[in-house]
Amino acid sequence: MMRYTSFTSYDFILLAQGLGVSLALFAVTTLIGLLIGTTWAIVRFYRVPVLTPLITFFAELLKNSPVLVQLFLVFFGLPALAKINVTPVEAAVITLSGNTAAFIYVIAVSAIESIGRDQIESARVFGLTRWQVLRHVVAPQAMAFAVGPLTGLLVNQLQVTSLISVIGVVDLTKIGNILNLRTLKPFIVWTIVGGLYYVTAKLIALGGARLEKRLRAHTAWKGL
């Protein structure tokens, strides 16, 4: 066997596979993160005692510590503490979802706060329940407010997925590592990998901008 070989056409499939894994994990953890993050924000909206400060503290902790350390805690720490088996993909899903949730929570909270308290209170005066206020008054406005920051977050979270390569998930960055070792052409390999991330990030940003435009157009039209 040769010590290293140059690129083959099979490498394209490898790269595509890696990109697929990155995108799949990105999509799954974004959805879970959205779900958890908004749930946390709703808990805060209802001002649930004990739970609200707990969530705020936890979100701050996740936001202000390195994702790599969170990843190590889940992948190496959890099995040691609880004597359970955690695969790299599971660790990746848990960590990225939690991290995304923390940031979504912050965005959701500020989106809700962007809606004047007077609006919420006047709706309550008309006899709407807190849930009705949330659904019909808060949610539609908060959503339009949140799309911009959300797009920024998603572009960032796509990049964060690259860290799961460190615990052995075969994502785009891991494929980069494999090709780097095999071909010994780091500039080419990392330029291609970086380029793929760049294009994906741009597509996400573009999608977010389109959605924002549409949401804003929608609310403007409804306002007439």
Binding site: V155, L158, Q159, V160, T161, S162, L163, S165, V166, T173, G176, N177, N180, K185, P186, F187, W190, T191, V193, G194, Y197, Y198, A201, K202
Partner: peptide
């Protein structure tokens, strides 16, 4: 635009493995 949209670990590997090459 480039350095904001490419994961830091990829940038790091680019320099770490690439610089000795040149």
């Amino acid at each position: 635009d480039l350095f904001r949209n490419i994961p830091f670990i990829v940038q790091l590997f680019f320099f770490f493995y690439g610089l000795p090459e040149i």
